Simulated scan of single mutants.
Amino acid sequence: MWSDWEVTSSRETPVPADRSRADDDPESLQRIAVDVAREAGRHIARRRPEVFGRGGAPSVADAVQSKSTPTDPVTVVDTEAEHVVRERLAERRPNDDVLGEEGGGARQAPSGVRWVVDPIDGTVNFLYGLPAYAVSVAAQVDGRSVAGAVEDVVRRRTYAARLGGGAWVSDDGGEWIRLSVRDVDDVSMALVATGFGYGAARRRRQGEVVGALLPQVRDLRRVGSAALDLCMVAEGQVDAHFEHGLSPWDWAAGALIAAEAGARVRTPSPHSRSSDGEVTVAAAPGVADAFSALLDSLGALDPIPDGAGAQ
């Protein structure tokens, strides 16, 4: 149930040896990811009161638009933040590819370094002023995350990891603290984070899964940012996370952080998109097999593509 990539992408994973440039090493890429995510986070924090004011309604014309459905928004600040990230990456890594949620990029993972960027993961929270949204920046080689950072914008906490180097968190540029998943061995006591898609048909099927899962675990949490969910697994604030329909920019950094903190992680293929409905799972090792078996018994390891269950 766990693919080779996810099972082995932990602290013991060797760094791929086929890179020719010294500055392609994961430590260098992690530093860039941290710097860029923090700068974009500062931009978002500064712009929100300018765009939304104190009343919460947008004060800039066309500040909010819809993407896949009317309930799936994008704001002018999403676009600005991705521009900040792309600009900084172009300065420091001009030959690399960039895949961003708002600006697009090649669907197929290139053979060199590809940066995978979500300028605001948790846009609905950002829109409503709920304090759970993040910038996610990851470097991938051959479709595999080798370094990444997630900036918790409101709490000004930076999560970071590199392949084989462990997972870390720092508050506002202070001391780095190593992360480790929670020691739990009973799936019935597992606190589980999840999220939902924007299409009605997928939500209907996700609701069925949640209804069957809830009596069999401690409880469920719906934070509204997959990147932060995965970091919460790494920090031991939840024991597991699962969600259908994440795109690479949603999981590329957070999944690596969770894995480097000791979690067992299953991700979609690196060229997938939300519409494919593949599942992302991260769990503390003590409950990983039981949690995966539980999801499998509910059919929740299968994709839930857009339109699933539609009549």
Rank of each mutant, 00 (worst) to 15 (best):
W2P: 00
D4G: 06
D4F: 13
E6Q: 14
S9P: 00
R31W: 06
A33T: 07
A33F: 07
D35H: 07
R38D: 06
A40H: 10
R42K: 10
I44G: 01
R46T: 04
V51M: 05
G53R: 12
V60N: 05
A61I: 11
V64P: 03
D72K: 10
P73M: 09
V76H: 04
D78P: 01
D78R: 12
E87Q: 10
R88M: 15
L89R: 01
R93Y: 08
D97Q: 14
E101Q: 10
G104W: 08
G104D: 11
P110W: 03
P110A: 10
S111C: 08
R114P: 07
T123E: 02
N125P: 04
N125L: 05
F126E: 01
L130H: 15
V135P: 11
S136P: 07
V137L: 14
V146T: 14
A147K: 07
A149T: 08
R155Y: 14
A160Q: 15
G166P: 02
W168S: 01
V169H: 03
D172A: 11
D172G: 01
G173M: 10
I177Q: 10
I177Y: 05
D186E: 15
D186W: 12
D186I: 13
A190L: 02
A190C: 03
V192K: 11
Y198R: 15
G199V: 11
A200Q: 15
R204L: 09
R204K: 13
Q206W: 01
E208K: 06
V209K: 00
G211Q: 12
V217E: 11
G224H: 11
L230R: 03
M232C: 12
M232E: 15
L246H: 08
W251P: 01
A255C: 06
E260C: 01
R266I: 14
E278G: 02
V279Q: 00
T280W: 05
V281A: 01
A284K: 01
V287N: 03
A288G: 13
L298M: 12
L301T: 13
D302K: 04
P303S: 02
D306I: 07
A308D: 00
